[in-house]
Design a protein around this nucleic acid. Sequence first.
DNA 1: TCTTATTTGTATACCTTTATACTTTTTAGA
DNA 2: TCTAAAAAGTATAAAGGTATACAAATAAGA
Lengths: 254, 254
Amino acid sequence: MTNNTSKKDKTSLDHNSSVPLFMQIAETIKRRIVSGQYNPGNQLFTGEELEREFQTSNITIRKAMEKLKNDGFVERRRGLGTTVSKIDPEPLEFELGRSFKKLKESIEKLNTQVKVLEITKTISSKYVQDFLSLNSEQEIWRLKRLRIYQGYPVSFNTYYADPSNCAGITKKKAEKDDILNTIEQAMGIKIYKVNQTLRSVVADLDVSSALKIPFGSPVFFNETTYHSDSGETLLLSQSYFRGDMFVFRTSSLL
Amino acid sequence: MTNNTSKKDKTSLDHNSSVPLFMQIAETIKRRIVSGQYNPGNQLFTGEELEREFQTSNITIRKAMEKLKNDGFVERRRGLGTTVSKIDPEPLEFELGRSFKKLKESIEKLNTQVKVLEITKTISSKYVQDFLSLNSEQEIWRLKRLRIYQGYPVSFNTYYADPSNCAGITKKKAEKDDILNTIEQAMGIKIYKVNQTLRSVVADLDVSSALKIPFGSPVFFNETTYHSDSGETLLLSQSYFRGDMFVFRTSSLL
DNA sequence: TCTTATTTGTATACCTTTATACTTTTTAGA
DNA sequence: TCTAAAAAGTATAAAGGTATACAAATAAGA
């Protein structure tokens, strides 16, 4: 069977990136392998072909292939070539429904534990103040929680609210899964409307050290505001979800 | 006004990452600045504090701060300290609704151009074959399109289908925005149901060179399958959206 | 104005990444 | 079995990242 990369066009390396070229190439080839673009077994591609595709030198391709070899994706034999050896199994994934209620339900069905990292009152950033219509000298109530699955952190939440009504929220109460209910009761207000945004971002050190994932990993960033029926913003929530473990899935009729 | 980092806990660097430590730190501090966690103006943090927080050396912090200085986020004066100088403006963002119809409508409202990169028949990967219930020796029809806004690529799509009914789809037809309609007409079948998944991933070289974004940038990955009313999979679509330009926004009542 | 604490800047040495040029191993065919 | 082509492997040198230790600039107080 013939090599299916032989006619591959040139692919540009990112020479401005701080990520080494050989890592960029290793990551790209790995993606191609796990997405099934190279068939495992006798299928093979040569260093020289890759040098041409990525317009780089011998040693850079070699280091990339060496990494793939160490990670168990390829085997190399002198004079023979490189063969694709295995395909990584699909990662563990949590499926999340699209609507707010479904999202909440999906998360609560996951059989995860919640750990409270912090409950505090503090001076907060302008960004958060603006959401909650507070002025700059006012303290804000902040709750940080980590959601843990089989010992591994999978998501990281921060809640912000006006502190006047949150005094009664203890660590124990905040550890309960239905935090909205807890907050509604503490505040004595009913949440009526919810606005959500979902972004794709990469983990900086603050996120990567909380979730114990590599710097630069993909994460979903979900920002949610909770409003009373009079339109007042009661609560702001910021959440980071591991991108390799969460997938949003929807189904619709046309 | 007092420095709001002085009591910051330790933050772990990622020593396994191929991203240099000083870049990790620069990125993290930049995030803190643009998210309003340091107030611009007289607010300042010292190199030594950061050395302690990140448990690293002088020169690493210096290089991080030098980068922030060059990028215009901070100013540094010997003996005086580092001051936050500006906050980046919010990036251009496209808002996308949550349901399939809304998503399609949102995208088509964007005033973008569509460029066809490729229409071809080819042997495809097992992954794609499985979706479309084809066997390994069969050719597959593939269409690659780039969506362009003000000269910049913003999303990148690949469509896969059984080639038998796609012969009539010319480049000109594929350049029209309503590709689904075009495909429905060419195939003579009505699309009835749509399954979508949405993931947060980072750009490898294949994606980054198509979208002309840095390697490692965040992107949304949307995979959609289109089905007939008898449940048959007619079409597979894979799309990458620039994470810095797209946000999914929903609003719901509780 | 001298001294000291504070804070950013520099020198040197070691390691990693990358390019260029060259070497060794394997296979296949005369 | 010899030779040549094809492929992975190595040597060396230049550039960049990081740690340790030290130097220079600024501000404030005696």
